[in-house]
Design a protein around this nucleic acid. Structure first.
Length: 574
RNA sequence: GGGCCCGUAGCCUAGUGGAUAGGGCAUCUGCCUUCUAAGCAGAGGGUCGCCGGUUCGAAUCCGGCCGGGCCCGCCA
């Protein structure tokens, strides 16, 4: 694709007798607020400092002096800005040809080739089902994985199940006391919900019988000591929970290449703990617990091993992270975890640095905001959550209702597939369109709609465009000059399409999937405007029809590529 | 008390130094015998939390304050 920025920067460098270098100029170039002002603008404020002249005057003089490169149609000084108009037919030609030539890889690059990264996300606790917060986490995890992969990196998606600790013992205790050997099969319950119900039961019971808490801790002690009966119950309940998670992941589309279980790593930290003691990073405190001294690093100290020698959560991460880097030969590892754990990760990474691991600097915590309900914070202890399975079902049902309104004769199977695609698109886009660090308020009644800036809107635009191509039949794209796509609607759409790879690049650099969402919204809006203004199949001439079809085809391609990165299905019928 | 994050119309949100703060929801007005109206065109709605500073120029950078969230466990 012709790099107009490059062209302009080159011409400006020449006109400025290299007073500014090409890449400095390129960095200064911006896009004017309205298309009528031009395609690119060079602000002259920096030059005003260097040349000690008024920026308006500089812009004016530059316009006289500059040599117009091929592809630039017009140059126009506008106050302190020098505005450039690129040749419209060239924009169309370049953009469309490039998109159609690259097809599914348009927007992808290969600068990450040979690099390997692990994306750890989801991280459920084995005592209860997934909730709304996990859904946001899963959306970010999948999108970030896809965005990394689009840079050519090898991505390993990992899940860690927190299957060890007091929380699962609480579910176990309630089951032991009141379960009567029931099973998910016997009660016909989804197995993770089955386990979660006992957790809620425990928390209700413990208010009346505080001694249950002591019993739960005794159970944990038994578990730690390898008590056979306790382990057996634990194994059964963990299996139920994980089986349930897998069903939810399957339905939601979350994929994992590898699974870690805390119970398998928490006691493998001996070597790293010893190393830390030798290096003086970990010290015994007065009670005999092992503590990472971080005060001198501006962080609170962190206990890494209890007085009684048992592990806490970080003990697991210490062992597991070292294993990850060694075993998978990672270049980087990224944890997708909510911002409530910001301090925890700063401590963890600082410990790795102090221990002298050279990969310590390649650990990233992608911290995201919480999902809140109008009634306040999600509290799983009280069962006060929006359950993941419930919300998925609710949105799919809502989508099904909308589909049936429009298509009365739709078959059962087709309806199920389409409503799933649309329902999930609504959830995923809603979770991804907001900057990751922000908290989200989730109002089940109002938060998710199918209109406006939503997943279904993008899908709808795609389906509309695709339907034109289908109706057009087999088209043979001849070599066009595309001098018929110079109207403002076409040009706006073309520019947004051309800008899509930049959006993908930015979303990687800033670890921000919402930049891709924004790009797709703008493309869909521009396409719909174009759609209403111009008939494609009933165009005035065969030439116009073919050129417009090419534009539609390019739009279809970009929307499809973008939705794929967001893990949203592009569907041909709505 | 300390640390981190957030504050942009009734609600949600984009925008980290540049031109008139960009969208969406909701409200109001038009547009389906015309390639899918989950759409399009248009209207109204803003002290960019407040105060000060830096700058030719601040929603954006710095300082202070106010409001909200999270964290500061030998919990995860």
């Amino acid at each position: 694709m012709a790099d107009f920025k490059e062209l302009i920067a080159g011409a400006l460098e020449q006109a400025l007798d290299s007073k500014l270098k090409k890449d400095e100029i390129s960095a200064l170039l911006e896009v004017p607020p309205t298309p009528g002002m031009g395609d690119y603008a060079f602000p002259c404020f920096k030059l005003a400092e260097i040349l000690k002249k008024k920026p308006n005057k500089i812009a004016f003089e530059l316009a006289e002096k500059i040599f117009l490169p091929d592809g630039i149609a017009e140059i126009n000084p506008n106050g302190p800005y020098l505005n450039f108009f690129v040749a419209k037919d060239l924009v169309a030609q370049d953009t469309i040809n490039e998109i159609i030539k690259q097809g599914d890889v348009f927007g992808k690059r290969d600068f990450g080739k040979g690099q390997k990264i692990m994306v750890e996300y989801s991280g459920p606790n084995s005592n209860k089902p997934l909730h709304l917060g996990h859904l946001r986490n899963n959306c970010i995890g999948m999108a970030i994985s896809n965005i990394f992969a689009a840079s050519g990196m090898k991505v390993i998606k990992a899940n860690i199940v927190n299957d060890r600790g007091i929380h699962i013992c609480k579910s176990m205790l309630a089951y032991k006391l009141f379960g009567n050997k029931a099973t998910p099969e016997s009660t016909k319950e989804k197995p993770d919900h089955f386990v979660g119900d006992y957790y809620i039961m425990y928390n209700k019971m413990v208010e009346e019988k505080p001694e249950l808490e002591k019993q739960a801790y005794e159970m944990l002690q038994k578990w730690e000591n390898g008590d056979k009966e306790t382990k057996k119950l634990w194994k059964q309940m963990t299996e139920w929970a994980v089986q349930g998670f897998k069903e939810t992941y399957e339905e939601f589309g979350s994929k994992f290449d590898t699974w870690f279980f805390e119970s398998q790593y928490y006691n493998k930290a001996k070597a790293i703990l010893k190393l830390g003691e030798e290096k003086g990073v970990f010290k015994r405190n007065e009670n005999g617990a092992l503590v990472a001294e971080l005060e001198s690093q501006g962080l609170p100290d962190k206990t890494v091993l209890r007085t009684d020698g048992t592990s806490i959560y970080i003990t697991n991460d210490l062992a597991l992270t070292e294993y990850k880097f060694k075993h998978f030969k990672l270049n980087e590892s990224i944890w997708i975890v909510g911002n409530e754990q910001d301090l925890y990760f700063r401590q963890l990474f600082k410990i790795f640095t102090l221990l002298g691991f050279k990969w310590a600097k390649n650990c990233i915590h992608l911290s995201h905001g919480m999902v809140n309900l109008p009634s306040g914070r999600l509290k799983s202890r009280e069962g006060k959550v929006v359950d993941a399975d419930d919300i998925i079902k609710e949105l799919e049902d809502l989508a099904a209702k909308e589909i049936k309104k429009r298509d009365k004769k739709i078959g059962e199977k087709e309806l199920a597939a389409r409503s799933r695609a649309i329902g999930l698109a609504a959830i995923k886009f809603h979770m991804l369109k907001v900057a990751v660090q922000k908290d989200i308020m989730f109002n089940p009644k109002e938060s998710i709609s199918f209109e406006g800036e939503t997943g279904p809107y993008i899908q709808y635009s795609y389906a509309r465009a695709k339907s034109i191509l289908t109706k057009a039949g087999k088209i043979k794209l001849k070599k066009f000059g595309f001098e018929r796509l110079i109207g403002s609607e076409e040009q706006k759409l073309l520019k947004l399409l051309a800008n899509y790879p930049e959006a993908v690049k930015k979303s990687l650099e800033q670890l921000s999937p919402h930049i891709i969402c924004q790009s797709l919204i703008e493309i869909a809006e521009a396409f719909n405007t174009f759609y209403h203004k111009h008939k494609v199949l009933k165009a005035g001439s065969e030439e116009i029809k073919m050129e417009r079809l090419a534009l539609v085809q390019a739009t279809v391609q970009v929307l499809k590529n973008g939705l794929e990165l967001l893990d949203i299905e592009a569907i041909e019928k709505m």
